[in-house]
Write a protein that binds this DNA or RNA. Structure first.
Lengths: 243, 243
DNA sequence: ACTATAATACTTGTATACAAGTATACTCCA
DNA sequence: TGGAGTATACTTGTATACAAGTATTATAGT
């Protein structure tokens, strides 16, 4: 798809995706990782040449990324916004906001099946840890939270999630790849936290949920640091984009 | 733009918009109003013919509407989801959620300028009432809430608003047009409510804010009823879409 | 040296062409 | 009458062509 040999986004997750989606996924990763620096101006023609596709899917990708707030479409060219620490904290604000909302709804529902589903996902996360598969772990981690959010059947909360998910996923991917290499011991804590979350949902224990959610989010700081390290590593290993 | 003579969306608001945006705005209004019924399957070719434009802007419009959850893109054709009472309540859930979040941030800020800006907007709403201009009133009403939401400078909260705004605006437009004709007395109450909201922001009075916010949202039920009446009126007055 | 103006090399937005895939309807056969 | 298979008329996804607008650069004149 592109002259760049290395893809940041797992290619096997794109089996059914259109070219436009593929471009969006890959471009998103390059922006989140800092490979494409904030402030860069992207032109449809140049991107089309780089990815060796026509402008149609490029345009589609740019619209998607613009709706996710990581680029801004202007009269001439798309300006990369990227993710500073501020933006990352804001993303977690929103995630906290919607997951809290979701939990309030969950309290009024039967959560047996949900807890079961989450246990299954957590088992898969453990397997991924065991086999050192950062991407698979990230996938299941994202799925864990998506399962919770979708469970209440609230289409507009789901809509927010859908908008947030791609960037979220990218962040988690980059962070987890780094941790699998350098902070392997983190994962016992992460698993424990998710177990706590499941318990809270099963017991409909609001306090426990808030506690585990916050501990989960205290990882944010770690995630941010990981991301910067990841960005540095990537930008050292790869030739910067010249015109 | 289209063979239909009557536009539901105010044309003067589209002066700088691209064809794709125009189509999105108009299509959105037809869907929200019920002119295009939920369950209808839209084809790009047919829409392109109807609006007398090419498929490019149509595709763009459909992506936009899909991201707003009022249509669903499938393998063949886009299925209209529309707004049932459930969806409308969900929209207000989200609005309540983000405006509450915003208020918590506002408490920690200097709200003098914001209160001033809101007073100006409210004055404009009063003028719109005086001159019986439902569209202008709607515009200012939406702007009122947008001003509040943007004031905290939270890009991801703003992102949610941007996603919600078009549908919100459409709902308000249809509802206000109806009320200007049939429930003119409503507006003294609406103005009063907005004044209360400004007071709450100026005084950073959480309780007052919640109160006015909820009274504001108690209009929801009214809005929903208005919408149904509006839908009936429209579908009687206009020939249904045939193939 | 500097400004104004004109040429040019870009940009996006829209229309059109083509390819590949899918549902429908029809025909042929039993 | 019913069913398998094929033809056909759709669908979307992608590439390309063209038009209109904008920034930049170069040139000419003072």
């Amino acid at each position: 798809m592109s002259e760049y040999n290395d893809y940041l986004y797992p290619q096997k997750w794109l089996s059914k995706a259109s070219t436009g989606d593929r471009v969006a996924y890959e471009l998103r990763m390059r922006i989140i990782s800092g490979l494409i620096e904030s402030g860069t101006i992207l032109s449809e023609n140049k991107l089309a040449a780089d990815f060796e596709v026509s402008r149609s899917p490029i345009r589609e990708a740019l619209r998607i990324l613009a709706s996710e707030n990581i680029i801004r479409l202007e009269k001439m060219g798309a300006v990369v916004i990227g993710l500073s620490e501020k933006e990352i904290e804001e993303i977690y604000d929103v995630r906290l906001l919607i997951e809290t909302f979701v939990f309030e709804r969950l309290i009024k529902m039967d959560t047996t099946n949900l807890a079961l589903e989450l246990s299954k996902t957590l088992e898969m996360m453990k397997v991924a840890i065991k086999y050192n598969d950062a991407d698979e772990f990230s996938y299941q981690d994202v799925m864990f939270h998506e399962t919770i959010i979708r469970s209440i059947g609230h289409s507009y909360i789901t809509m927010i999630w859908n908008n947030l998910k791609p960037v979220m996923e990218g962040l988690i991917l980059l962070s987890m790849r780094m941790r699998f290499k350098e902070k392997y011991e983190d994962f016992t804590r992460i698993v424990k936290n998710h177990e706590l979350y499941i318990d809270a949902i099963r017991a409909k224990d609001r306090e426990l949920m808030i506690k585990s959610l916050h501990e989960n989010f205290d990882d944010v700081q770690g995630k941010v640091e990981d991301l910067w390290r990841s960005q540095q590593m990537l930008s050292k290993g790869v030739e910067p984009q010249n015109d």
